[in-house]
Design a protein around this nucleic acid. Structure first.
Lengths: 334, 334
DNA sequence: CTGAAAGCGCTTACAG
DNA sequence: CTGAAAGCGCTTACAG
């Protein structure tokens, strides 16, 4: 069974390809096609199950109704949830999503952008990697809508949507201090992206503002992408060598590794040790005792991203850059 | 900056479009293009940063190097992890993935297939919904490689890769019985897909084989897609109205809701209540006490799916259907 | 109110 | 060893 083309429909309906095309694209009125012809053609389309070839359409029009979504790692629950929300919202507006994971690797991210370019995606949603500045600038020069999210890039003028990582981190430390904690550790990663450095800055600033000293030995920077066993070893060493009465984990997967360590060394969470994890995870509510977390408003982030993107897509010209900073919420669970 | 076309390259190199095309597609040797011309053209391509327009290529060749991946819900960690593994493996072989979530909705699934069709994806990987049989049959008739995974469809002849849900479920119940449990509950969903019914059958069969009676009131079928609060209420009712000393949760998200209930009604997991969750989740290892789980070998499933797909993609003709059933493993954690 | 024709950027059978 | 030309399936400016 050969798939049908617009020509087949035109032949069947005894009209020109042009007429069929106008009808398919809802321009029948505007082009004053007669009611009778519209009905006839629509009926044939309906009955035959004809679907326009989007590839041909894209080639001709230069756009695709596809939005490229580039995240760090789709299997991380934060990104998986954001991706799903964005997918839903985009879908309702007639856009499809192609996603891919960068694994925090510049080369992979660049390849992805090139692939998306050659597929003529209409817009980009990117949780960027350092080193991608030039590529993003080129997209913007090409007049493509680009929204960065989760983390910003210092040297690039682009729209950005993200949580206020600095203040969420600051508040977390404040809450430890209010509980009388003094030996406050931070377990974070070594990737040099804004959302991670902000969390670090918030930690440091809060300590200093409350008259505590910042001690390097209480900050553990885990190498990104290393296997979990090594991460667990390093965290174990931290707890064995330092006196710690509170700890902020800068990502949810680090917190999960950290909780495994605490369980294995039988360190009780509670009065003697307070814990906050950045980015919620099902495991934290369930944990005994419940683990306090910083929650980013996923729904609001996804909605803002899509709104910004759609407004750019409809107004041909790129709007002035907007940075939308959304507050994150500290959920205390014990 | 206008994007370059093959014509621009041809003009710059002072050769025909045909020659450039042969070189780009690695057919230079075969078409005996001279070494000098190859070098010259490659140099120009390199310097100009020219990337062939994949849309035009797809229109011409009828394929896209894209694989469509249709899952139930990309934000579920099982699917997110499988998607990521498949993405990695496909990427290495030069294929990209477009994914989308069906939300267990036939209409949405059909729309997705249509969208993928009109984008000329080369192959389909589908965790199907009941009611999709006809659509899948049409794909196969169109000679498109299709791999079903996670769940099979009874009335359709397609390649399938999935875990042995029946036997994993059976073993779980066996392990309860070995611990002397007699009042064994099952919390499952009401969706009528093979992997869920198999888990139910395994439960029932094990009970009967060991001389226990199957009691309907110990099986709770949660409506798919209902909000978590209702799920929690129903599970709470089950535990309040029945005497239960062991429970198998048929999905990881049901187990998470279930554990919240047990926590809230202060029912201790251990000697008086055994728990097994189907599909692992970070929360289960971390839970105190650790929750036993059935683990599907994600890596192996993803690898098998890709292998089957690629072998179909390369051998023009569709291979006879294969069903690859991979054993799942019961991990005891307490 | 409707149609013929150009063109989007490729690939490839055919010719030389 | 290389090129001119048809054609994939659309959209749209132009003509009538």
């Amino acid at each position: 069974m050969k798939t049908l083309s617009i020509k087949d429909i035109a032949v069947k309906a005894n009209v020109s390809i042009t007429t069929v095309s106008f009808i398919i694209n809802g321009k029948a009125k505007e082009k004053s096609i007669s009611e009778a012809v519209i009905k006839k053609v629509e009926k044939i389309i309906e009955e035959s199950g004809y679907k326009p070839n989007q590839i041909a359409r894209s080639l001709r029009t230069g756009n695709s109704n596809i939005i490229g979504l580039i995240v760090e790692d789709i299997s991380n629950s934060f990104f998986a949830k954001i991706a799903r929300l964005i997918e839903d919202k985009a879908y309702k507006r007639g856009y499809k999503i192609i996603y891919s994971s960068t694994e925090n690797n510049v080369e992979k991210a660049q390849e992805l952008i090139n692939m998306f370019k050659s597929r003529k995606v209409d817009a980009y949603i990117i949780s960027p990697v350092k080193g991608l500045e030039e590529d993003i600038r080129m997209l913007i020069n090409d007049n493509k809508p680009v929204i960065l999210f989760d983390r910003n890039l210092r040297d690039v003028q682009a729209n950005y949507v993200g949580a206020n990582h600095f203040s969420a981190s600051y508040q977390s430390i404040e809450s430890f201090i209010a509980q009388g904690k003094r030996n406050i550790a931070l377990v974070t990663t070594d990737i040099d992206v804004q959302q991670i450095t902000e969390r670090f800055e918030g930690y440091k600033k809060a300590l200093l503002d409350y008259g505590l000293t910042y001690r390097e030995e209480l900050v553990l920077k885990i190498h990104f992408n290393q296997n979990e066993a090594s991460t667990i070893d390093e965290i174990k060493m931290l707890f064995n060598s330092e006196k710690i009465d509170a700890v902020l984990f800068a990502t949810n997967y680090l917190a999960i590794s950290g909780l495994k360590v605490l369980k294995s060394i039988k360190k009780k969470i509670g009065a003697e040790l307070s814990v906050i994890a950045y980015d919620d995870h099902e495991a934290f509510e369930l944990h005994t005792p419940g683990i306090s977390t910083v929650q980013q408003p996923l729904e609001e982030i996804a909605e803002t991203v899509i709104k910004l993107l759609l407004s750019q897509l409809s107004s041909k010209s790129i709007l002035p850059n907007q940075e939308v900073i959304i507050p994150a919420t500290l959920i205390i669970r014990n």
